[in-house]
Amino acid sequence: MPKVTEAYRRKKQLEIAHAAKKVFETKGYTDTSMNDIMLEANIARGTLYSYFDSIEQVFLEVLAIVDNHSFTFIEEVCNMKFVDQLNTLIYKEVVDLLRQPSLVQARAEYFFSLEDTTFFEQRHKRVIEGITNFLQQGVESGEFAPQKDVRSIAHFMLSFVDGLMLNTSQLGETSNFVYDQLEVFHSSLYYLLGVEN
């Protein structure tokens, strides 16, 4: 039997996780089974279990993929001015998140089911660090002159986006007045970051 390389193993794990993401987006976390993932990925039960031991392990891999995509966006637009990156983040990335099939329900079900919140706290801290670093670079470039501590602004940004996604997943874009809220968010961030309109 040929030996499976680590690169092949990782590639296969990511393929399974991408298939699982579709299932979690449709069914949520609590209603998804390993069988659902097996069918979506078009693999045998033994193959699935050779890469993942549990639903939770698959879901954590899916969350890692989503998080990595978010930080890749910032790296991809690093040649833009920080103000332009901020505008793109607000009006493109956030709207794209809202319009794509969302993991909001699955995330909420998973995080509310946790007895030990260590993972949630670590993940939250990682995202806040990423946003804070982005804002701090804008300060160092001279584009941002924050009225408040950049870490507090990062917490505000994440809380706003999380809340907007949760409400929009239940109410829809129109009923949740997404664009009106984004305008207010945009104005608030410009004020907090000392950016002239």
Rank of each mutant, 00 (worst) to 15 (best):
A64E: 08
F120S: 01
D84F: 00
E140C: 05
L98V: 15
H124C: 08
V161M: 12
S70Q: 09
P101E: 09
M165G: 14
L182H: 07
R151D: 00
K148Y: 15
E183F: 11
Q122H: 10
D116A: 04
C78K: 07
Q136M: 06
N68A: 14
V150M: 10
N167A: 14
V94D: 05
V127T: 14
Y110N: 03
D162W: 04
E76D: 10
Y49C: 01
S159V: 04
Y91T: 00
E93M: 02
F71S: 04
F134H: 13
L166S: 09
E183I: 14
E121K: 14
F134W: 15
G46S: 14
V77W: 00
Q100W: 00
Q100M: 00
G142F: 06
V83M: 04
K92F: 07
V77M: 07
F73D: 02
Y110F: 15
T174D: 09
I153D: 05
L114M: 14
Q147P: 00
L63V: 07
S141V: 06
L182R: 11
E140H: 09
V77G: 01
A106N: 02
Q85L: 04
E56M: 01
F120G: 04
T174C: 07
F82I: 02
F144T: 02
V95D: 01
I131N: 03
R107F: 00
R99N: 12
I128K: 11
V104R: 04
F144L: 04
V139H: 03
T88A: 15
F112A: 11
H124Y: 11
D180L: 10
L164A: 03
D84V: 05
E140A: 14
Q136T: 12
E183Q: 15
R151I: 06
Q105I: 12
C78R: 09
S169V: 06
M165C: 15
D67N: 15
L135A: 07
L63C: 12
S159Y: 07
E143G: 03
V150C: 11
E173P: 04
V95A: 02
Y49E: 00
E75F: 01
V178T: 13
P146V: 00
F52Q: 02
Q57C: 10
T168E: 06
G172L: 02
G46E: 07
S113E: 02
D96G: 07
D84T: 09
F156R: 07
Q147S: 09
E183D: 15
T88Y: 15
L158S: 12
L171V: 08
M157F: 03
L166N: 04
G163A: 13
I74M: 10
Y51Q: 05
V150E: 09
Y91V: 07
